[in-house]
Computed example of a mutant assay.
Amino acid sequence: MKCIFVFDILNGAVVHALRGERSRYKPVAEFSQVIESSDPLLIMDELRPVQVYVADLDMIMGRGNNMELIQEISKRAKTMADTGASRSSDLDLLPPSVIPVLGTETASISLIEEVSGQRRTIASLDMSKRRVLSRDKAMADRSPLEVLEELNHIDLEGVIIMELDRIGTCAGLDGEFLEKARARSRHPLILGGGVKDEMDLEALEKVGFSGALVATAVHNGMIPRKRIQ
């Protein structure tokens, strides 16, 4: 089970993400029990994660980027990054070593397919309250499980099941839904949102998931730092 440590970066600082309500995000040091800084590179040095997921919130919201930080992070750990790409040229600044995460919130199925033919790619099935978030009406009108099946024909490194309304909540797992997702997808699956402790990680592994995005449960001490190292 891969424990992939999450950096949500806004204005150069790591913030504590909660339910996808970006206007309410605060510097992670105000929340964390394990670090005292919100500087991404200082956190990298302190926690030494092996693999990280970066959400560049400035790029996602269309108001700048944190590409220099992503470059530095990628020198210290295996890195995947969501920069809110809606066209292939949006990925031109992303370092070649960084795996792009194309979320359905901004990327169409056709873009995911196009980029996957050019470089290693991870898709993110972005949801809130089990509704697919997408500007692509063809996806927005489908159920999450139907979109998972649509992604099966694309060559991907994996698919993130991103439950935005559960991010930062440590709400635990919905085992029934996750079992259905595992049965419908041919790709390695990673869960984002809701993981609360090591027991959840063990349960995810039993369902057949390849990994989990973790942040809040590390910062509150429920998942020990050794799991991301």
Rank of each mutant, 00 (worst) to 15 (best):
M67V: 12
H153M: 13
G168C: 06
S185R: 09
M127N: 05
P144G: 10
H187G: 01
V115E: 09
K78P: 00
M59K: 13
H187V: 00
D126Q: 08
R131S: 14
K75N: 13
F177M: 12
T106M: 07
L178W: 07
D197N: 15
S89T: 06
T79N: 04
C170H: 13
S89Y: 07
I167K: 10
G62D: 10
E179L: 06
A81C: 13
D92M: 02
L94K: 04
C170Y: 09
Q71L: 06
A171F: 09
V98N: 00
D174A: 10
G117H: 10
V98W: 05
I99Y: 06
R142F: 06
V147L: 12
V98Q: 01
Q71H: 12
T79A: 03
S134P: 12
L111S: 13
V132E: 02
E149G: 11
L151G: 08
S97D: 08
D56N: 08
L133C: 03
K78Q: 04
L151W: 06
L148H: 07
L91A: 04
I60Q: 11
P144Y: 03
S88C: 03
I190S: 04
E68Q: 12
P96Q: 08
R166P: 03
L156M: 15
S74E: 02
A85I: 00
D92Q: 05
D141L: 15
R186F: 10
L204A: 00
L204V: 00
V115N: 06
S108I: 00
G192Q: 00
A85L: 04
I109W: 07
L173H: 07
S134R: 11
L189D: 12
R186A: 11
E113H: 05
A77F: 11
I112S: 06
M162W: 09
S116H: 07
M139C: 14
